[in-house]
Simulated assay, not measured.
Amino acid sequence: MTTEKLYEVNNVELCAETFGDPADPALLLIHGAGASMLWWERELCGKLAARGRFVIRYDQRDTGRSTSYPVGAPTYAMSDLAADAVGLLDTVGVDKADVVAVSMSGGTALILGLDHPSRVASLTFVSTTTGDDGLPPPSMPHFDSPDFTDPAAVEEYVVRSIEAEAAGHFDEPAARELVRQDLARARDYEASLTNHFAMTFDGPRNGGFADLRMPVLVLHGDADPLLPLPHGEAIRDAVPDARLIVLAGMGHGLSEPYWSTFVDALVEHTERSR
Protein backbone atom coordinates (compact mmCIF):
# COMPACT_ATOMS: atom_id res chain seq x y z
CA MET A 1 0.00 0.00 0.00
CA THR A 2 1.34 3.41 -0.89
CA THR A 3 0.59 6.76 0.68
CA GLU A 4 1.84 8.71 -2.33
CA LYS A 5 -0.19 11.74 -3.34
CA LEU A 6 -0.17 14.04 -6.36
CA TYR A 7 -0.07 17.74 -5.48
CA GLU A 8 -0.65 20.75 -7.74
CA VAL A 9 2.37 23.01 -7.22
CA ASN A 10 3.42 25.90 -9.48
CA ASN A 11 1.20 24.63 -12.30
CA VAL A 12 2.82 21.17 -12.29
CA GLU A 13 2.02 17.90 -10.58
CA LEU A 14 4.44 16.69 -7.92
CA CYS A 15 4.15 13.26 -6.36
CA ALA A 16 5.14 13.14 -2.69
CA GLU A 17 4.96 10.82 0.28
CA THR A 18 5.29 11.59 3.98
CA PHE A 19 6.37 9.54 6.97
CA GLY A 20 5.86 10.21 10.66
CA ASP A 21 3.98 12.77 12.71
CA PRO A 22 3.25 16.15 11.03
CA ALA A 23 3.75 17.74 14.44
CA ASP A 24 7.43 16.74 14.40
CA PRO A 25 10.15 18.88 12.78
CA ALA A 26 9.95 18.51 9.00
CA LEU A 27 12.71 16.95 6.93
CA LEU A 28 12.58 17.56 3.16
CA LEU A 29 14.58 15.01 1.15
CA ILE A 30 15.68 15.97 -2.38
CA HIS A 31 17.52 13.34 -4.40
CA GLY A 32 19.93 13.88 -7.26
CA ALA A 33 19.60 14.26 -11.02
CA GLY A 34 17.17 11.83 -12.57
CA ALA A 35 16.39 10.11 -9.28
CA SER A 36 12.80 9.74 -8.10
CA MET A 37 11.83 9.74 -4.46
CA LEU A 38 12.28 5.95 -4.41
CA TRP A 39 16.02 6.56 -4.15
CA TRP A 40 15.25 7.74 -0.61
CA GLU A 41 14.45 4.18 0.44
CA ARG A 42 11.29 3.62 2.45
CA GLU A 43 13.20 1.88 5.23
CA LEU A 44 15.54 4.86 5.59
CA CYS A 45 12.60 7.27 5.71
CA GLY A 46 11.05 5.11 8.41
CA LYS A 47 14.23 5.25 10.48
CA LEU A 48 14.22 9.04 10.30
CA ALA A 49 10.53 9.23 11.22
CA ALA A 50 11.20 6.94 14.21
CA ARG A 51 13.71 9.53 15.46
CA GLY A 52 11.06 12.21 15.63
CA ARG A 53 11.10 13.71 12.15
CA PHE A 54 8.23 14.37 9.73
CA VAL A 55 9.84 13.11 6.54
CA ILE A 56 8.85 14.33 3.08
CA ARG A 57 10.21 12.63 -0.03
CA TYR A 58 9.03 13.57 -3.52
CA ASP A 59 9.51 13.18 -7.25
CA GLN A 60 10.99 16.32 -8.74
CA ARG A 61 9.87 17.34 -12.22
CA ASP A 62 10.86 14.74 -14.81
CA THR A 63 11.13 11.95 -12.26
CA GLY A 64 8.66 9.34 -11.07
CA ARG A 65 5.01 10.28 -11.25
CA SER A 66 5.60 14.04 -11.39
CA THR A 67 5.16 16.20 -14.48
CA SER A 68 7.41 15.20 -17.37
CA TYR A 69 8.70 17.27 -20.29
CA PRO A 70 9.78 16.33 -23.81
CA VAL A 71 13.13 14.56 -23.84
CA GLY A 72 15.93 17.09 -24.04
CA ALA A 73 13.58 20.08 -23.85
CA PRO A 74 12.70 20.92 -20.24
CA THR A 75 11.27 24.42 -19.93
CA TYR A 76 12.37 25.00 -16.35
CA ALA A 77 15.42 26.14 -14.42
CA MET A 78 17.01 24.94 -11.20
CA SER A 79 15.37 27.90 -9.45
CA ASP A 80 12.00 26.44 -10.50
CA LEU A 81 12.90 23.18 -8.78
CA ALA A 82 13.67 25.20 -5.65
CA ALA A 83 10.33 27.01 -5.97
CA ASP A 84 8.65 23.60 -6.30
CA ALA A 85 10.17 22.58 -2.98
CA VAL A 86 8.77 25.71 -1.33
CA GLY A 87 5.38 25.15 -2.94
CA LEU A 88 5.33 21.55 -1.75
CA LEU A 89 6.04 22.68 1.81
CA ASP A 90 3.12 25.10 1.50
CA THR A 91 0.84 22.35 0.23
CA VAL A 92 1.66 19.90 3.02
CA GLY A 93 1.40 22.64 5.65
CA VAL A 94 5.06 23.00 6.62
CA ASP A 95 6.41 26.45 7.46
CA LYS A 96 10.11 25.51 7.71
CA ALA A 97 12.05 22.32 7.00
CA ASP A 98 15.48 20.85 7.41
CA VAL A 99 16.57 20.24 3.81
CA VAL A 100 18.75 17.31 2.70
CA ALA A 101 20.01 17.25 -0.88
CA VAL A 102 22.10 14.75 -2.83
CA SER A 103 24.54 15.38 -5.69
CA MET A 104 23.21 17.81 -8.34
CA SER A 105 20.32 18.78 -6.07
CA GLY A 106 22.83 20.47 -3.83
CA GLY A 107 22.35 23.37 -6.25
CA THR A 108 18.62 23.36 -5.53
CA ALA A 109 19.32 23.32 -1.79
CA LEU A 110 21.71 26.25 -2.17
CA ILE A 111 18.99 28.28 -3.89
CA LEU A 112 16.56 27.36 -1.11
CA GLY A 113 19.01 28.46 1.57
CA LEU A 114 19.82 31.78 -0.07
CA ASP A 115 16.62 32.81 -1.84
CA HIS A 116 14.07 31.24 0.54
CA PRO A 117 15.93 31.29 3.89
CA SER A 118 12.79 31.69 6.00
CA ARG A 119 11.70 28.22 4.86
CA VAL A 120 14.96 26.44 5.65
CA ALA A 121 15.92 25.46 9.19
CA SER A 122 19.16 23.74 8.17
CA LEU A 123 20.91 22.32 5.11
CA THR A 124 22.64 18.98 4.62
CA PHE A 125 24.67 18.39 1.46
CA VAL A 126 25.33 14.73 0.59
CA SER A 127 27.86 13.86 -2.13
CA THR A 128 27.64 17.27 -3.77
CA THR A 129 29.92 20.11 -4.84
CA THR A 130 30.50 23.85 -5.08
CA GLY A 131 31.23 23.37 -8.78
CA ASP A 132 34.42 25.41 -8.46
CA ASP A 133 37.05 25.22 -11.15
CA GLY A 134 40.03 23.08 -10.24
CA LEU A 135 38.16 20.38 -8.34
CA PRO A 136 39.07 16.83 -9.43
CA PRO A 137 37.09 15.29 -12.29
CA PRO A 138 35.11 12.04 -12.10
CA SER A 139 36.99 8.76 -12.28
CA MET A 140 34.00 6.65 -13.36
CA PRO A 141 33.83 4.59 -16.54
CA HIS A 142 31.73 5.92 -19.42
CA PHE A 143 28.52 4.12 -20.33
CA ASP A 144 26.85 4.68 -23.68
CA SER A 145 23.18 5.65 -23.47
CA PRO A 146 20.86 2.66 -23.84
CA ASP A 147 18.13 2.01 -26.37
CA PHE A 148 15.18 3.47 -24.50
CA THR A 149 12.76 1.26 -26.43
CA ASP A 150 14.38 -1.75 -24.71
CA PRO A 151 13.45 -1.81 -20.99
CA ALA A 152 15.98 -4.55 -20.23
CA ALA A 153 18.78 -2.48 -21.74
CA VAL A 154 17.70 0.59 -19.77
CA GLU A 155 17.57 -1.44 -16.56
CA GLU A 156 21.07 -2.81 -17.15
CA TYR A 157 22.44 0.65 -17.94
CA VAL A 158 21.16 2.14 -14.68
CA VAL A 159 22.18 -0.87 -12.56
CA ARG A 160 25.71 -0.75 -13.94
CA SER A 161 25.82 3.01 -13.31
CA ILE A 162 24.80 2.44 -9.68
CA GLU A 163 27.52 -0.20 -9.38
CA ALA A 164 30.16 2.19 -10.71
CA GLU A 165 29.12 4.91 -8.26
CA ALA A 166 28.87 2.60 -5.24
CA ALA A 167 32.63 2.07 -4.79
CA GLY A 168 32.34 -1.44 -3.41
CA HIS A 169 29.08 -1.08 -1.50
CA PHE A 170 26.90 -2.52 -4.24
CA ASP A 171 23.85 -4.69 -3.63
CA GLU A 172 22.83 -5.83 -7.11
CA PRO A 173 19.44 -7.37 -6.21
CA ALA A 174 18.44 -4.23 -4.31
CA ALA A 175 19.68 -1.96 -7.10
CA ARG A 176 17.86 -3.96 -9.76
CA GLU A 177 14.61 -3.89 -7.78
CA LEU A 178 14.92 -0.12 -7.29
CA VAL A 179 15.44 0.43 -11.02
CA ARG A 180 12.50 -1.81 -11.93
CA GLN A 181 10.21 0.08 -9.57
CA ASP A 182 11.52 3.36 -10.96
CA LEU A 183 10.86 2.27 -14.53
CA ALA A 184 7.33 1.15 -13.63
CA ARG A 185 6.45 4.48 -12.00
CA ALA A 186 8.05 6.93 -14.40
CA ARG A 187 5.97 8.95 -16.83
CA ASP A 188 8.97 9.02 -19.18
CA TYR A 189 12.17 7.36 -18.02
CA GLU A 190 14.23 8.72 -20.90
CA ALA A 191 13.23 12.22 -19.78
CA SER A 192 14.21 11.27 -16.22
CA LEU A 193 17.73 10.38 -17.32
CA THR A 194 18.08 13.37 -19.64
CA ASN A 195 16.24 16.49 -18.65
CA HIS A 196 17.86 17.47 -15.36
CA PHE A 197 21.09 17.83 -17.31
CA ALA A 198 19.36 19.94 -19.97
CA MET A 199 17.58 22.44 -17.72
CA THR A 200 18.74 26.02 -17.16
CA PHE A 201 21.26 26.23 -14.32
CA ASP A 202 20.53 29.72 -13.07
CA GLY A 203 21.71 29.52 -9.45
CA PRO A 204 20.71 31.68 -6.49
CA ARG A 205 20.00 35.41 -6.66
CA ASN A 206 21.31 36.22 -3.19
CA GLY A 207 24.93 35.18 -3.03
CA GLY A 208 26.79 31.91 -2.75
CA PHE A 209 27.84 29.27 -0.25
CA ALA A 210 29.63 31.84 1.93
CA ASP A 211 26.33 33.67 2.45
CA LEU A 212 24.42 30.76 3.99
CA ARG A 213 23.37 31.55 7.54
CA MET A 214 21.64 28.38 8.71
CA PRO A 215 23.45 25.32 10.13
CA VAL A 216 25.14 23.35 7.33
CA LEU A 217 26.28 19.73 7.41
CA VAL A 218 28.30 18.08 4.64
CA LEU A 219 28.39 14.30 4.25
CA HIS A 220 30.79 12.88 1.68
CA GLY A 221 32.35 9.52 0.96
CA ASP A 222 36.12 9.34 0.61
CA ALA A 223 35.70 6.82 -2.24
CA ASP A 224 33.26 8.90 -4.31
CA PRO A 225 34.24 8.33 -7.96
CA LEU A 226 31.85 10.91 -9.40
CA LEU A 227 32.53 13.86 -7.09
CA PRO A 228 35.74 13.03 -5.21
CA LEU A 229 36.14 14.12 -1.59
CA PRO A 230 37.67 17.55 -2.36
CA HIS A 231 34.22 18.57 -3.67
CA GLY A 232 32.73 18.05 -0.20
CA GLU A 233 35.73 19.71 1.45
CA ALA A 234 35.16 22.73 -0.80
CA ILE A 235 31.63 23.15 0.59
CA ARG A 236 32.92 22.88 4.15
CA ASP A 237 35.56 25.51 3.43
CA ALA A 238 33.11 27.84 1.67
CA VAL A 239 30.33 27.87 4.28
CA PRO A 240 30.93 29.61 7.61
CA ASP A 241 30.88 27.06 10.47
CA ALA A 242 29.93 24.16 8.19
CA ARG A 243 30.72 20.68 9.50
CA LEU A 244 32.04 17.87 7.29
CA ILE A 245 31.61 14.18 8.07
CA VAL A 246 33.77 11.96 5.87
CA LEU A 247 32.30 8.50 5.40
CA ALA A 248 35.16 6.06 4.94
CA GLY A 249 34.78 3.82 1.91
CA MET A 250 31.48 5.33 0.73
CA GLY A 251 31.03 6.11 -2.94
CA HIS A 252 28.57 8.53 -4.50
CA GLY A 253 25.24 8.70 -2.74
CA LEU A 254 24.15 7.10 0.49
CA SER A 255 24.73 3.34 0.61
CA GLU A 256 22.80 1.26 3.15
CA PRO A 257 25.85 0.44 5.33
CA TYR A 258 26.02 4.17 6.15
CA TRP A 259 22.37 4.71 7.03
CA SER A 260 22.88 4.51 10.79
CA THR A 261 25.70 7.06 10.68
CA PHE A 262 23.60 9.28 8.41
CA VAL A 263 20.54 9.13 10.65
CA ASP A 264 22.52 9.85 13.82
CA ALA A 265 24.40 12.74 12.20
CA LEU A 266 21.26 14.23 10.68
CA VAL A 267 19.28 14.06 13.92
CA GLU A 268 22.13 15.72 15.81
CA HIS A 269 22.57 18.37 13.12
CA THR A 270 18.91 19.26 12.87
CA GLU A 271 18.64 19.65 16.63
CA ARG A 272 20.96 22.64 16.18
CA SER A 273 18.31 24.33 14.04
CA ARG A 274 15.56 24.12 16.66
Rank of each mutant, 00 (worst) to 15 (best):
residue 57 R to H: 15
residue 62 D to Q: 09
residue 29 L to Y: 01
residue 274 R to Q: 07
residue 81 L to K: 03
residue 117 P to W: 07
residue 219 L to N: 07
residue 259 W to Y: 05
residue 217 L to Q: 06
residue 175 A to R: 01
residue 10 N to G: 06
residue 136 P to V: 03
residue 204 P to F: 08
residue 49 A to L: 09
residue 143 F to K: 04
residue 235 I to L: 14
residue 7 Y to R: 06
residue 28 L to K: 04
residue 200 T to A: 06
residue 65 R to C: 15
residue 240 P to C: 13
residue 268 E to C: 00
residue 78 M to R: 00
residue 19 F to E: 12
residue 32 G to W: 06
residue 199 M to V: 06
residue 175 A to P: 04
residue 26 A to T: 09
residue 118 S to P: 03
residue 231 H to Q: 11
residue 199 M to A: 03
residue 247 L to N: 07
residue 70 P to S: 01
residue 114 L to R: 10
residue 270 T to I: 10
residue 248 A to V: 10
residue 175 A to N: 01
residue 21 D to Y: 03
residue 247 L to K: 04
residue 192 S to R: 13
residue 215 P to D: 04
residue 142 H to Y: 09
residue 179 V to F: 14
residue 14 L to S: 03
residue 119 R to T: 03
residue 64 G to H: 12
residue 103 S to A: 08
residue 32 G to I: 12
residue 8 E to F: 02
residue 232 G to A: 04
residue 17 E to Q: 11
residue 79 S to W: 09
residue 6 L to Y: 11
residue 119 R to Y: 01
residue 144 D to E: 14
residue 43 E to S: 03
residue 130 T to E: 10
residue 52 G to E: 01
residue 9 V to S: 08
residue 154 V to D: 15
residue 129 T to R: 15
residue 258 Y to G: 01
residue 11 N to P: 02
residue 192 S to N: 15
residue 232 G to D: 13
residue 134 G to N: 06
residue 95 D to I: 00
residue 199 M to W: 04
residue 5 K to M: 05
residue 115 D to T: 04
residue 269 H to E: 03
residue 45 C to Y: 11
residue 38 L to I: 15
residue 270 T to E: 07
residue 114 L to S: 15
residue 174 A to M: 11
residue 230 P to E: 14
residue 181 Q to A: 14
residue 107 G to K: 02
residue 96 K to W: 06
residue 68 S to I: 01
residue 181 Q to C: 12
residue 214 M to L: 04
residue 217 L to P: 00
residue 85 A to V: 07
residue 68 S to M: 07
residue 123 L to K: 05
residue 40 W to H: 09
residue 183 L to W: 04
residue 135 L to F: 11
residue 274 R to T: 13
residue 206 N to R: 11
residue 252 H to Q: 12
residue 69 Y to C: 00
residue 182 D to M: 15
residue 213 R to N: 11
residue 114 L to H: 14
residue 55 V to M: 05
residue 138 P to W: 14
residue 94 V to K: 13
residue 68 S to D: 07
residue 246 V to T: 01
residue 242 A to H: 02
residue 105 S to T: 08
residue 76 Y to S: 02
residue 20 G to S: 07
residue 206 N to F: 00
residue 55 V to I: 10
residue 173 P to I: 11
residue 106 G to T: 01
residue 219 L to H: 05
residue 42 R to P: 02
residue 19 F to Q: 05
residue 143 F to G: 07
residue 115 D to I: 06
residue 22 P to K: 07
residue 156 E to N: 08
residue 208 G to R: 01
residue 91 T to G: 09
residue 16 A to E: 02
residue 117 P to L: 15
residue 28 L to C: 00
residue 18 T to G: 10
residue 237 D to S: 04
residue 121 A to F: 14
residue 246 V to L: 05
residue 145 S to E: 13
residue 26 A to H: 12
